[in-house]
Amino acid sequence: HERALMVNRLQKLTRMLRVHPDPKWKQEQQELIKRLK
């Protein structure tokens, strides 16, 4: 369940980064990718 939330968050971040590349979001995205591996 928590994994699904993280995947959701990651997808949302990816969409937001396409619109507005924010370093903070980029960092969070990298963190999520690490944790999901």
Rank of each mutant, 00 (worst) to 15 (best):
H20T: 08
L13M: 01
L32D: 01
Q11V: 13
L10A: 00
I33K: 04
Q27P: 02
T14S: 08
L32I: 08
V7E: 09
D22H: 11
P21M: 09
K26S: 04
M6Y: 03
P21C: 08
K26A: 09
H20D: 10
R15M: 10
R3S: 04
M6K: 03
M6A: 04
R15H: 09
K34L: 10
V19T: 13
L17Q: 02
H1K: 12
R15Q: 13
P23K: 08
L36S: 01
H1S: 13
K24S: 08
R18Q: 10
A4C: 15
K26W: 07
K34Y: 07
L10S: 00
M6F: 02
E28C: 02
T14F: 06
L10M: 02
N8Y: 12
V7F: 13
R3P: 02
L5C: 15
V19I: 13
L13W: 00
K34R: 14
E31M: 13
P21I: 05
E2M: 12
V7A: 08
R18V: 04
K37F: 14
Q30I: 12
M6L: 13
R35T: 07
A4L: 12
R15I: 09
K34C: 13
M16A: 04
H20F: 12
V19S: 11
E2W: 14
N8W: 12
Q11G: 05
Q29M: 15
W25A: 06
L17G: 00
K12T: 10
P23T: 05
L36N: 01
K24N: 07
E31T: 08
L17K: 01
K26R: 11
H1Q: 11
R15F: 06
H20I: 09
K12N: 06
L32K: 00
L17T: 00
V7Y: 14
I33A: 04
K24E: 07
E28R: 03
L5R: 15
Q11E: 09
H1C: 15
W25M: 15
H20A: 06
Q30G: 05
D22I: 05
N8G: 10
P23S: 06
L13Y: 01
R35E: 05
K37G: 10
R3T: 07
K26G: 03
Q27R: 12
Q27D: 07
E31V: 05
E28Q: 04
Q11I: 15
R18H: 04
D22W: 08
M6D: 04
E28T: 03
D22M: 05
L10P: 00
R9Y: 05
Q27W: 07
L10H: 01
K12M: 14
L17F: 02
K37S: 10
Q30T: 09
K34E: 09
K26M: 11
R3L: 14
L5Y: 11
L10T: 00
W25I: 13
L13S: 01
Q30E: 12
R3M: 08
M6I: 15
K34V: 08
V7W: 15
M16S: 03
K37I: 10
K26V: 11
Q29L: 15
D22K: 11
Q29C: 13
D22T: 08
L17D: 01
L32N: 02
A4D: 11
Q29I: 15
K34D: 03
E31I: 09
M6Q: 04
E2F: 10
L13C: 02
K12V: 13
I33F: 05
L32R: 00
L13F: 02
K34S: 08
R3H: 10
R15N: 07
K26C: 05
L17N: 03
H1D: 13
E31W: 12
R18F: 05
R9H: 03
K26E: 09
Q30N: 07
K12F: 15
N8K: 15
L5G: 09
D22Y: 09
L5S: 13
T14H: 07
D22E: 06
K24C: 13
L5A: 14
L36W: 02
K34G: 06
R15T: 05
E2N: 09
D22N: 14
E31H: 06
E28I: 08
K37V: 07
E31S: 08
Q11N: 11
M16F: 03
T14N: 12
K24L: 09
I33M: 04
Q27M: 11
E28F: 04
Q29P: 00
H1Y: 14
N8S: 14
V7C: 15
L5V: 11
V19Y: 13
A4Y: 11
M16K: 05
R18I: 07
K24P: 00
R35A: 11
A4M: 14
P21F: 15
K12W: 15
K24H: 07
P21Y: 15
L5F: 10
L36I: 06
Q27T: 08
L5N: 10
V7N: 04
Q30F: 06
P21N: 13
R35L: 14
R9F: 06
T14L: 09
M16L: 13
H20G: 03
P23L: 06
R3Q: 05
Q27Y: 06
P21A: 10
R9Q: 05
E2A: 10
V19E: 10
M6S: 03
Q29R: 12
E2H: 09
